[in-house]
């Protein structure tokens, strides 16, 4: 029975067989970190504070995140190890409501912390530990070496928490954004490296089959 349940989970794990899921996640985090850094450090009259540049930047990021993985899957993954079309979720409401609740809770937490002039290094690092746990559940369960990634994320989050707030804040003109820039950069780099290694291993261990083999 357990073997059947494990078979039912294989298609989900297949999505990241080539590391593309992580590469996309890493790209997104680095994109957010870069935008936050630019907004925190650019002069007040700079275009980086304007809505048009923000929309263009986010739009480009979304387009790359949407079409990039699709292109890799179409030209590299599907010809090598096969095509999978996933089932649409039976209910889109539950994930949407859960996401909204989590987003509202995080926003409220940040707003309260800012009003009280709290140090945001610790909450940002706690977010990192949460991320490490969800990464362990999502990826490391199926690929053993990815436990090393979980350890790096968890350790990195603790190191950020241990740093003096002034040092972390100096990344973003001594504002609260410093901790988030640091944690986003950490996620971005770790996910990109881990996804890159998975992608390299995938290319190394798979060959595109002869046309008649499909």
């Amino acid at each position: 029975m357990e073997q059947i349940e494990s078979l039912l989970n294989r298609p989900k794990a297949y999505y990241n067989i080539d590391g593309v899921g992580e590469l996309a996640g890493g790209f997104m985090c680095l994109g957010f970190a870069l935008l936050m850094w630019l907004q925190a450090n650019a002069p007040k009259e700079s275009a980086w504070h304007g809505m048009p540049v923000f929309i263009i930047y986010m739009g480009s990021l979304c387009l790359i995140l949407h079409y990039g993985p699709k292109a890799i899957k179409k030209h590299i993954t599907y010809p090598r190890t096969g095509f999978v079309q996933y089932r649409a979720r039976d209910s889109r409401w539950l994930p949407a409501i859960l996401s909204a609740v989590v987003a509202a809770a995080v926003s409220a937490g940040v707003a309260i912390a800012l009003r009280g002039h709290w140090n945001l290094t610790t909450p940002a690092s706690l977010m990192g530990l949460l991320f490490a746990a969800s990464y362990a559940y999502g990826f490391a369960r199926t690929v053993r070496w990815k436990w090393a990634v979980v350890c790096v994320v968890a350790l990195g989050s603790l190191v950020i928490a241990a740093n003096p707030a002034a040092l972390v804040g100096s990344l973003a003109d001594h504002s609260w954004q410093g901790a988030f820039i640091l944690i986003m950069t950490l996620y971005g780099v770790v996910l990109s490296v881990s996804g890159g290694i998975s992608f390299w291993l995938y290319l190394r261990h798979t060959e595109p089959p002869a046309p008649e083999a499909q």
Binding site: G82, V84, A213
Partner: peptide, 26 residues
């Protein structure tokens, strides 16, 4: 059983995917 379980979890897949996941010959 392997094939049905794999197909149950997806909308559809191709022959190559099933071959890769199950290790069966053509």
């Amino acid at each position: 059983l392997m094939l049905v379980a794999l197909l149950f979890a997806v909308e559809r897949s191709d022959f190559l995917y099933l071959q890769h996941e199950t290790g069966m010959n053509k």
